[in-house]
Write a protein that binds this DNA or RNA. Structure first.
Lengths: 138, 138
DNA sequence: CTCTATGCAAATAATTTGCAAGCAC
DNA sequence: GTGCTTGCAAATTATTTGCATAGAG
């Protein structure tokens, strides 16, 4: 778990509790974005049970500090993944089995300024997700 | 309300009830994607009240027929907009007031084939949403 | 007349809030 | 010790399901 995450927690006035450390460890090791419920189960399996409510609160806090990214795939659940130390990227999810795969590309850079000129919005972030059928499901 | 929407309803074995017609009229006239709750209120205001449950069922049905598109902006609600007769596009939403603006652009065409080659997925659709601050809120 | 559509009640699922006790610093 | 954290219970919000009646074709 990179030191900077802990530093940025502290910079935000947050404490590194045992529970929080366990959650961060799982999240850092996960290659793919996870839901609160998934984290809840993984914490229980790791013998570090944490109330689901606390998982939600920690994810919201980490999101506010900008340490995790919220990923909204269209199954009605919000997933989170650690942002620190990872290149900005997007995902593709299989319509059949729900599998998620990282896409290490993002063509949005140039578009952002175009959109800012067009709408006068100050663009802060974007989401880009693909949906389709994985090799096993098609 | 374009005839083709009604034709495609019928082609799907669906009936054009008064309630459904009122819902479609509001949805067609709306420039921006709407939630089930918003539609419920608008129908009530238009003196064509429809149970919220029925709104959900109609939106799900229209989505299955491919007549509406689901837009997932990150505030925990699904919005729908009529797809028929509109160019494929995306949205930007203000972090402050929640305002949504259409973006008439989509740079995904070339990317799709790149992603299909990279992941072996058959890409079916994608979502692309921007978030930022509108002129009034920044 | 047949089958879909609707309303109402109730059930789920995801997420949030209130409050008292616990732990990090 | 002081204030952020956590767990537990309960409340909210979004959405879905069951069932009997109403309406379209």
């Amino acid at each position: 778990m990179p030191d900077t995450i802990i530093e940025r927690l502290r910079a935000g006035g947050k404490k590194l509790t045992k529970a929080r450390k366990a959650l961060l460890e799982i999240l850092v090791q996960s290659a793919l974005p996870m839901t609160a419920a998934e984290l809840h189960v993984r914490l229980r399996n790791a013998k570090k049970p944490m109330d689901l409510v606390t998982v939600y609160r920690n994810l919201a806090m980490l999101h506010q500090l900008g340490l995790v990214t919220a990923v909204g795939l269209h199954d009605g659940q919000i997933r989170y993944e650690v942002r620190h130390g990872r290149a900005h990227h997007h995902h593709i999810q299989c319509r059949g089995c729900g599998k998620i795969v990282d896409l290490m590309l993002c063509p949005m850079k140039k578009l952002t300024s175009l959109i800012e000129a067009q709408t006068k919005f100050a663009v802060e972030s974007h989401t880009l997700e693909f949906f389709g059928w994985c090799p096993q499901c098609r």
